[in-house]
Write a protein that binds this DNA or RNA. Structure first.
Lengths: 184, 184
DNA sequence: ATTAAATGTCACACATTTGAGAAATATTTA
DNA sequence: TAAATATTTCTCAAATGTGTGACATTTAAT
């Protein structure tokens, strides 16, 4: 089944996110599959990690682009990008770090990077426009807002795991905090 | 030298923070020591991890308590707690997660937990007082502010690694964003 | 310069993880 | 039901990681 492959990838993302060197057995267990089966779908650990990265990037990108295109009001776009980020968030962290650091060479040959740049530029554009409109403080650089954005997402994901509040409530708190933080 | 031990711990914290199951060889390499030497200081992997946890907790706690005691103005206390958190931040993440989840039993027998509770309560107290004074929005629960606090810290640490701004600038941006986010 | 302590080198036994073959079993599809 | 496909089970060899002993080398202190 193509379903098995997907399940393995999902499991791998979950497990590796907690422990990048976790034994493949754990991934297999989580996917309720034999390690042998896992190896039929993925040549080796590297390949699996690589596929996870791509899966995440691709699904996050889609969500982000959808958020951007869902409106032409920058403030709405920003809000939806935050929510999209939160929804991807649980999967995000470790692989996100991999993208930043390590061996990753950011190049325009790389399709993923092109999309990444597209989203990054859109984000910057949204912020700059909101600054022009006087809704976002000019003291906050787009770069800072970018990392703040990620930080709020991480907080939200974390809050979801630890507090008793509903996911919806937390998301609203996140957006309120975020927009107030960067407002004029 | 006692210096070696410290270097190994610092390296372990750095490496394990990226990959909790990383081979000890990596830690040794990073500390510029042989694996053999590492084993002279630490019986086994477990012991090393345990020592790392304690080292972090202890140094963070000290910084936090110092921040709290450095003033009796809650707003100043909060600001200094944020800065203290940022300074600990780089070491924080993985071990922080370990504290929350896994096998950790939160108990009052445990000295660390007592201190943790103390800090947590102080933090809550500060927030509640600021809410009474009308400086912090009552819509924001102390629990949310707690995770937001961590999120801002993570952002700041992250920003430091990626942007060109000075650390001081980033810290100020962090505090400004934070206080605006939770303000009335 | 001599000693003591710290670190490195090499070698080893042992455990875990990895990747794959072969045959049995289960599941899907026609 | 029969054939095709996917998965499991069992097995094994290779690779990697772990902890330690014996001895050589470096470093610091007297």
């Amino acid at each position: 089944m193509a379903d098995t492959k997907k399940r393995i990838i999902e499991s791998a993302i979950k497990i590796f996110n907690e422990d990048l060197s976790a034994p493949l057995q754990k991934v297999a267990d989580n996917a309720e599959v034999t390690r042998r089966t896992l190896h039929r779908y993925f040549k080796d650990r590297n390949e699996l990690v690589e596929v996870c990265k791509q899966a995440i990037e691709s699904s996050c990108k889609k969500a982000m682009i959808a958020a951007i295109q869902s409106s032409d009001e920058p403030i709405i776009q920003l809000e939806r990008m935050l929510y999209a980020g939160i929804d991807c968030g649980a999967k995000y962290s470790v692989f996100y770090k991999l993208h930043q650091s390590k061996d990753h060479k950011h190049t325009h040959q790389n399709k993923n990077c092109v999309d990444y740049d597209y989203i990054y530029n859109q984000f910057q554009g949204i912020i700059i426009e909101l600054q022009k409109k006087g809704r976002v403080s000019p003291a906050m650089s787009p770069e800072w807002i970018q990392v703040l954005h990620s930080g709020i997402i991480e907080s939200t994901v974390h809050a979801r795991e630890t507090t008793t509040k509903s996911f919806k409530e937390i998301k609203e708190l996140a957006w309120t905090s975020y927009i107030k933080a960067i407002a004029t």
